[in-house]
């Protein structure tokens, strides 16, 4: 019998920790708390909202630093210039 099969027969509650002795050894079993599957299942509490209408996300903490070499000036890609009274796309 596997451990999972043995535990199938026990009435476990999420979040609780159980302890027992088996063949002279102390065994501790911690049951993970039940997790909500989606954020939407949680009730919306207006007071918990921390986000301003404007929010700057933090800069990435990882990355590689490069020293850029001086290059030529940036010239634009030339768009199609409309004739007559057309508007370019």
């Amino acid at each position: 019998m596997t451990l999972a099969e043995a535990l199938e027969q026990v009435d476990l509650e999420p979040g609780r920790t159980y302890q027992c002795r088996v063949r002279g050894m102390t065994v501790e079993l911690r049951v993970a708390p039940a997790q909500e599957k989606t954020l939407l299942s949680k009730p919306l509490c207006e007071e918990d909202i921390m986000l301003d209408p404007w929010c700057e996300l933090p800069q990435p903490k990882w990355g590689t630093t490069f020293k850029a070499k001086p290059g030529p000036r940036l010239m634009p890609d030339i768009p199609e210039i409309p004739r007559d009274d057309e508007v370019a796309e």
Binding site: K67, A68, R73
Partner: peptide, 22 residues
């Protein structure tokens, strides 16, 4: 301003980077 000039897909973490004054 900094811009990526070229990139080897085999080593995307090592781009060829240039800067210019605009």
């Amino acid at each position: 301003v900094v811009h990526v000039v070229s990139l080897d897909p085999q080593t995307p973490d090592v781009p060829d980077v240039q800067s210019s004054l605009e």
